[in-house]
Amino acid sequence: MADAAPVMPASTEVLDGKRPWLIAALRYVNRNPSLGIGMVLLLALALFSGLGRLFVDVSTAAPLSAPPGAAPGPGLLFGSDPQGRNLLSVMILGTWLTIRTGLIAGAIGIVFGSALGLISGYIGGRTDAIITWMIDVLLTVPAILFLVMIAAVVQTGLSSTGMALVVAALAWRKPARAVRSQMLVLRSTGYVEMAKLSGGGPLRIVFLEIVPNLMSFLVSSFVAAVSAAILACVGLEAMGLGPQNEPTLGMTIFWMMEFSAFLRGMWWWILPPVTILIILFVGLYLVNAGLEELSNPRLRQRA
């Protein structure tokens, strides 16, 4: 946690270029602080994980590579856990694994979800009613419970990519619902009617007329999907259902609770994963709020 802060000034210096679009972007961020703060938080995590592996030997994230249960010291900045993992390496690798899992699951969710939403909204009528009803039923089902079942069944030998696929199995529901309702609004706009009258096929209309207008909406849905996917992944890992051979943040939380780190007072085992995850969730939330404001300027006047 102490390492995340010093990285930030460096990133703003890079942005201090003379190019006009940069200045325009910075001016915009000044008006939309949640986007700026969110980006800085996410960038800090990316730098921590990206640059960290240049300075630290990340193979020490494996068990038995450090003295067990050591408190943070000069050679071991974050200390180690009772199984002898160097916790700094675990955090560096775990941050990246968590972000990567979220990106994969979020991307699959948004692609399948928006495809379903676009089809359902474009066709309309009875098909749309049935699809929407099914999505509503599935949305009622608490996601983590079904992910628990899937993960418990496939359990042995789950990699972090497999984990992302498991989470993606339910990640499409919310994007599908949201894109469908946007589609309904856009379907009856003048320019879509115009394109239909001039003989455009459905694919042409959806991809050339509708999707470009939904772009900013899709980007903010994507950020929300990534955040939801990370939430689900870390939750499963914290229940001991994640990949067993990769140093994920959720697994660190699981072992920390199993080995009652609280009673042993091993704060260096508890606080880093929790802090990194909080920074990640708050960063994603702020970026999403900022993007919503970007795509819907009316929110700005209210604030």
């Binding site: 870390v234 939750g235 939380i253 929790v274 995850l277 909080i278 969730f281 708050v282 939330y285 702020l286």
Partner: peptide, 11 residues
């Protein structure tokens, strides 16, 4: 509101 319940719980 962006922070999951259990992370706050751990803190």
């Amino acid at each position: 509101s962006a922070i999951p319940f259990y992370l706050l719980g751990l803190v």
